[in-house]
Each structure stands twice: as structure tokens, then as C-alpha cells.
Design a protein around this nucleic acid. Structure first.
Length: 231
DNA sequence: GCCCAGGTGGGTA
DNA sequence: TACCCACATGGG
């Protein structure tokens, strides 16, 4: 079986990878640092998150126990560059509180089933669908496809929107039509984010540099027609 | 000065 | 369920 959606999703991936190359998201970081980064990056540019992460490391606090020992005020001061620092300090406290209940044993957690782990994560204050899936994918190596606002816009624009508009509806579109491969899911979401930085996203119809000139019938428009030339 | 970035939770209709 | 809003720094 090979649906039109499968073809389109594979073609989008192929084009994004050709244009931007591998993104190397969270390739060597510790799972805990990935979890912290996933919270700090909520609606925030990654460059600002890096400053906050560097502050935590410089304070010798990039560890669950170290974060638990910090006062809320001190933690907020450290993550201040990432914005929303008061609320993010609360979120990180909630995260490490939960980790403490798991004996801070991330290796054991990663052996849990993805569904159970996802429910646990969603029960933590400050962790919603996208952050939960980011953690599942980038920290625990589970094949969870991450949906962000930009991914939704692309899907809607291409014309393969799911019948529902919920997070889970969009996620199912990818999960049902792609091989559940952690490396692919990792790269695909990162490429969407990278493409999101392209200014052409503000153009109602994709033209010029845009990769997403895919016609409604699901057949890819030739690059020569779109004028798009990958690097 | 204005816009936006790797969202979530709480309130209201 | 579906909107609205607060939350905030830093770079272009």
C-alpha cells in the first residue's frame, strides 16, 4: 500500500533534507539536558535557550538533584535568558520532582513503553503534547513524531490536513504514513523547524525558494517549474 | 520600535 | 470544544 499521503510526506522529507542537510539535533547530549532544553525552548528561539543551558552548567546545576536544591528564585535567574523565566523555573521544578519519584533513573525510564511514558510526561506541569513528544523522541529514543505550529501550517497549505484539527490528528498523519524510525522522525521535525525560518512561510502560496510546491493531487511539481534550487 | 522564536495552562463562552 | 490571554528575553 502506498497512499497519496505517504508519497507526499516522503517527498517533503526528501526535499527538505536535500535543501538543508542533516540538522544533528541533540546528537550527543545527556537525556536530562534534552528534557531541560525541551522545556526551555517552548515558544523561544534556541539561541536564548543555549544561554540558559550554559548558565545552568556554569552553576554546576545541569542535574536533577542540583535543580531540586536550587531555590525557585535562583533557578529563575539562571534560566532568565530563555524568557518566561518565572514560569519555566516552576516547570523545571515540576520536572525534577517527577524525576525524583523515578529515582532519577533515566535509563530505566527509557525502557518503559512509549505510551505509558507519554502519559506520565503529560501529567507533569508544563509539559504538553509537543514537549512530551520532543522528550520521547530526542531524550528517550522513542518513535514519537513531534508536531509544532509550523508543521500544521505546512500540512494545511499542502492540502492534506487530517479530518480533525487536534494535535493527535496531525501526529497520526505522520505516524500512519511513515516508517516508525527514530532517526527519520528526529530529522524530519528538525527540518520542519529549519524550514520554518525561511521567510517565504509568510507568503500565502509557496513560490520561489519554497520547498513545498506540491500540487493537490500529490504529485511533486518539478523543481524547474517552481524555480527552486537547493544549495 | 516591531516582530517572532523548537508552547502551555488557565479562564471564559 | 474553541478561542483568548499571560508568560518575557534577545536577535534581526
Amino acid at each position: 500500500m502506498s497512499s497519496a499521503e505517504q508519497k507526499i510526506l516522503k517527498e517533503i522529507y526528501r526535499r527538505l533534507l536535500t535543501a538543508y542537510g542533516p540538522q544533528h539535533w541533540w546528537p550527543a547530549d545527556e537525556p536530562f539536558e534534552v528534557m531541560v532544553g525541551a522545556v526551555l525552548t517552548q515558544s523561544t528561539a534556541w539561541a536564548n535557550v543555549e544561554k540558559a543551558i550554559n548558565n545552568l552548567k556554569a552553576a554546576d546545576s545541569m542535574a536533577p538533584d542540583a535543580l531540586r536544591r536550587l531555590s525557585l528564585e535562583d533557578l529563575a535567574a539562571l534560566v532568565r535568558p530563555s524568557g518566561y523565566y518565572t514560569i519555566k523555573a516552576h516547570k523545571l521544578k515540576a520536572l525534577v520532582e517527577w524525576l525524583g519519584l523515578q529515582d532519577d533513573d533515566l535509563a530505566k525510564l527509557s525502557a518503559d513503553g512509549a505510551d505509558r511514558l507519554r502519559r506520565e510526561l503529560l501529567a507533569i506541569y508544563g509539559i504538553g503534547d509537543e514537549t512530551a513528544d520532543s522528550i520521547l523522541l530526542y531524550a528517550f529514543g522513542k518513535p514519537a513524531f513531534v508536531i509544532d505550529a509550523y508543521t500544521r501550517r505546512i500540512i494545511d497549505r499542502i492540502g492534506i490536513s487530517p479530518s480533525g484539527k487536534r494535535y493527535s490528528d496531525y501526529q497520526r498523519l505522520f505516524m500512519d504514513n511513515l516508517r516508525k524510525d527514530v532517526a527519520i522522525f528526529n530529522e524530519y521535525h528538525a527540518l520542519f523547524v529549519e524550514h520554518g525560518k525561511c521567510t517565504c512561510r509568510k507568503v500565502p502560496l509557496c513560490l520561489g525558494c519554497c520547498l513545498l510546491d506540491i500540487c493537490e493531487c500529490g504529485l511533486a511539481v518539478a523543481r524547474s517549474e517552481s524555480g527552486f534550487q537547493p544549495n
